[in-house]
């Protein structure tokens, strides 16, 4: 495991050469700032709301990696006062699906900070997020000696066909995609890294019925008090050293956890799926996108009569998708 971790560190240092800095505001990062790291590609339409959402939660500084966007993403981001931006036109896949780049930024800038690593379509929800800023959470985690915080992906989707209601820049995507699956997730423990492997939800229900093993992993550990010795292993699903993956209790109790509302399934999705299919830069030879593209031609709706409409984190906690643990 140590060797695996060293290898990841080595790779991230190697791959750091592919990153070139566009806008460096890292000097303004204060010692106890909470950071956010994200890799984007042609996501300009999503960014205004994304930034608004996370600024409101209390993120102090954003570190973005732009992977060869041509829709004005870099221009938009470098104009933001709390954003540092790197760019690369190298292969996402060969940077272990962006993990190497992210690991490098984390190692270099996030040492000693709480840092949230999310995609631009993921919205972090944690217990009491409507009344307490993210610093309340990180202070509490510090206080209880916890270094990492789990938040599984919950896919949200609209009621009608995906393309029915177009997404406007700056809009809250949950206004369109406000439905989710509440109780069809399956979990197994990954014996290698000790993390849980969670699958299920609407994408699995609609796309992967015949091949559930290939359904996307939904477990994520996006919030970590970073140390330069840490590395993400595959996306934010697992970390090394392995102790960081123990965000669950195996004794019958509940640790506290959050959710990443995954607003991927909106009208921008079919175009994205097609593009990603031709680029073939995603995990498992883009098997996920292949399955999507196949189904998307027959315009699926994800909604079913047992879909739940998203209200707030308390609803998710009652449904058993996240937990307050002993944070009260």
């Amino acid at each position: 495991m140590r060797l695996r971790r060293k290898r990841r560190v080595y790779r991230c240092l190697l791959k750091s050469r592919e990153l070139s800095i566009v806008r460096d505001r890292t000097k303004t990062i204060q010692p106890d700032d909470i950071l956010l790291v994200s890799t984007v590609r042609n996501e300009k339409i999503r960014l205004p709301y994304f930034l608004r959402y996370y600024r409101k939660l209390g993120i102090n500084h954003f570190l973005f990696i732009d992977n060869d966007s041509d829709d004005g993403t870099p221009e938009y981001l470098s104009a933001q006062p709390d954003v540092s931006l790197w760019t690369t036109s190298h292969s996402y896949k060969r940077a272990t699906f962006g993990v190497d780049w992210v690991n490098y930024l984390l190692r270099r800038y996030a040492h000693g900070h709480w840092v949230l690593t999310v995609d631009p379509d993921e919205f972090f929800v944690y217990p009491f997020c409507d009344t307490r800023p993210i610093r309340a959470l990180t202070d509490w985690l510090d206080n209880t000696g916890v270094r990492s915080f789990g938040a599984m992906l919950i896919d949200v989707y609209p009621k009608g066909p995906l393309t029915e209601e177009p997404y406007r820049e700056g809009q809250d995507p949950l206004e369109i995609a406000s439905w989710f699956d509440s109780g069809n997730y399956t979990i197994t423990r990954n014996p290698i890294y000790g993390n849980l492997w969670i699958q299920g939800g609407p994408r699995c229900r609609v796309f992967f019925g015949d091949n559930p093993g290939k359904a996307p992993a939904l477990n994520k550990i996006p919030l970590v008090r970073w140390n330069r010795r840490y590395t993400y292993v595959s996306s934010t699903h697992a970390l090394l050293p392995r102790g960081l993956n123990l965000v669950y209790d195996d004794n019958g109790g509940e640790k506290s956890s959050g959710v990443l509302l995954h607003a991927k399934l909106i009208d921008t999705f079919p175009a994205k799926a097609k593009e990603e299919l031709t680029r073939a830069q995603h995990y498992g030879a883009s098997a996920e996108y292949k399955a999507y593209a196949r189904h998307l031609t027959d315009a699926p709706t994800f909604w079913c009569e047992w879909s739940e409409k998203y209200i707030n984190w308390r609803q998710l906690e009652i449904l058993g998708l996240m937990s307050k643990g002993n944070w009260a």
């Binding site: 789990g150 938040a151 599984m152 997730y185 979990i187 423990r189 849980l196 969670i198 477990n219 965000v247 669950y248 209790d249 195996d250 004794n251 019958g252 109790g253 509940e254 640790k255 506290s256 956890s257 058993g320 998708l321 996240m322 937990s323 307050k324 643990g325 002993n326 944070w327 009260a328």
Partner: peptide, 26 residues
């Protein structure tokens, strides 16, 4: 209640932060 949730959890719930090992499910 918070202490109880943290130590005993909700019976029959398998989720991202409660995944009891064999024999610890209550």
């Amino acid at each position: 209640k918070a202490v109880e949730r943290r130590t005993r959890g909700r019976d029959g719930l398998y989720m991202q932060s409660r995944f009891p090992r064999h024999g610890c499910e209550n």
